[in-house]
Write a protein that binds this DNA or RNA. Structure first.
Lengths: 295, 295
DNA sequence: CGCGCTTGATAGGCGCATCCTATCAACCTA
DNA sequence: TAGGTTGATAGGATGCGCCTATCAAGCGCG
């Protein structure tokens, strides 16, 4: 059972295509096929159903896949752990963040890169569930997400931000100039919001429901940038996390009003997998995040 | 990087001896040396310091060891996971229990073996810290230990017992016939107890301290059987967890008195590592333990 | 119906990694 | 100083994994 064969298996399962998987693994297609066959011979079961083309994973393949991902991740962790022992930490730091947390990535990333010149940073936007999955398969080193709502299991967390809500409208609109607004009033405006697959929207719905309000947005989108553009065009208002306050402050046409909020604010923060042992990337991220909260 | 080489490395680190490690791995000593060299060449660092004999692990070796253990454990988990998918669960179930929980192993083991005829059970006595370590390195599949005191991290738990304390003395001694006893009175007797390295003793000390009492045992031992024998010989009394009540009930010379206890009882239960995914052994153990609490 | 494309399996050959036995070199102990 | 211990080295056999080239089955399309 060679880890390389596990890599073949995992890649085939993801791409559902032998030749493409072979290319991604940097080997020829027959090599990939032979590697998979060897793996199947060793575990004593067919892992991937195929008849002249990819069909799907067998039950045994389904059972094996998460383990294989975990093993490959641990191999990567081991390698970087040994490398970090003898040199300063280097390579690419993969950070996954929910959209609401994207404006926090800058501050975190700055400090990270400043302290560790050998590192490069890769930020990707993802849902909280994708972050949980990516953390477990070592596809990313850390995540920025909500800590109090649908928190992933088995993680170490560092809170970075207590979230409040901003009502955004055009400065020259009927509500321009406001600095505070009530939930009731906000919900009565023509709103554009994230779609319901996204966590901030679900949280917003819950907060509304707590007050007996229902939102019926006139437009939905999957990114804040789109929401801002819809507001700028004039027809809509929106509600966004206050992590976007600094960005909005630079927009001359935008007016932000804080929503009065008696609730305990949701915390956003850094999460890393809590494993024994901790990967160097993870412990570095924790140290950086903790130093940010200390400021 | 072949898992076999990791096995070589981990075994050498544990046995601190090349030839012995080779024998345990079932290969010749030169093979083991060559495998280790290949691993070191691949990671680019010497892992084990040696000059004609084993010296110790290098810093890189120390960093690598826990990862290697984790990978080997995951490989084992993967194998059993795939096997369990196509057949009923089989093999050896390794259970580690603190001494105070040993009398709970019977009930758990009975149900486990009854439901899964292909399984055999191996129980070993261990400290709570050894259990935590063994769980993480997959040396055991589950543990029986305290859930509220020095709980290992990253585990799923099922409470099986709420602990109370039994004062044990000879039935024909001065305190024979008692059914209840106060902490003050118990602490004034000539006591024999576990030594302080063991968790039940630390808990007992803490409970005593809560009441302003200090214990000065006249004898210490590392097993309950020894304690019972000291009591039987006549010179001592002891305090043990009530998990031993059924055992003591069969001893004609013993008299048990319940210690009055206003505290929240410590819970003893089953623990398994909380990993994604859960090994078949772990999920089996959880199911059995949960069915026991349902009764 | 047949041509060509797609996709995974097979064949043959090559090179490297791993394994073994045998032996050596350094060290320890008596 | 002789003998045992311990890890490294040498030399040879084996097998695994990799490549290129090719095949076989299914699919789409004229």
């Amino acid at each position: 059972m060679h880890p390389r064969q596990l890599r073949y298996f995992v890649t085939i399962a993801r791409l559902r295509h032998f030749a493409n998987a072979a290319q991604e693994c940097g080997v020829s297609q027959p090599t990939l096929s032979a590697g998979l066959s060897a793996l199947e011979r060793e575990v004593g079961h067919r892992l991937i159903e195929r008849d002249r083309r990819f069909v799907g994973l067998t039950p045994q393949g389904e059972a094996m896949l998460p383990w294989a991902e975990q093993i490959l991740g641990a191999v990567a962790g081991m390698t970087s752990s040994v490398a970090a022992r003898s040199a300063s930490i280097t390579g690419q730091f993969a950070l996954a963040a929910i959209p609401a947390a994207l404006p926090l990535a800058g501050r975190f990333g700055d400090t990270l890169l400043e302290r560790h010149p050998g590192l490069s940073l890769s930020v990707r936007s993802a849902t909280s569930r994708e972050i949980e999955r990516a953390l477990n398969t070592f596809e990313c080193d850390a995540g920025l997400t909500y800590l109090d709502h649908e928190t992933p299991a088995n993680v170490l967390t560092v809170p970075l931000h207590a979230e409040r809500y901003l009502f955004v409208t055009r400065a020259d609109g009927p509500l321009g100039g406001l600095t505070e607004i009530k939930w009731e009033e906000a919900s009565a405006q023509p709103l554009c919001l994230l779609h319901q697959g996204m966590q901030f929207r679900r949280i917003l719905d819950a907060r509304m429901l707590d007050r007996g309000l229902a939102i019926t947005p006139r437009a939905v989108a999957d990114s804040y940038v789109t929401l801002f553009d819809l507001v700028r065009s004039g027809g809509f208002c929106t509600i966004v996390p206050d992590t976007y306050a600094s960005l909005l402050a630079g927009l001359p046409w935008a007016c932000c009003a804080v929503l009065d909020d008696g609730d305990i604010p949701r915390r956003i923060g850094l999460v890393v997998v809590n494993r024994v042992p901790l990967s160097p990337m993870a412990s570095t991220a924790l140290a950086v995040a903790r130093s940010l909260t200390g400021v």
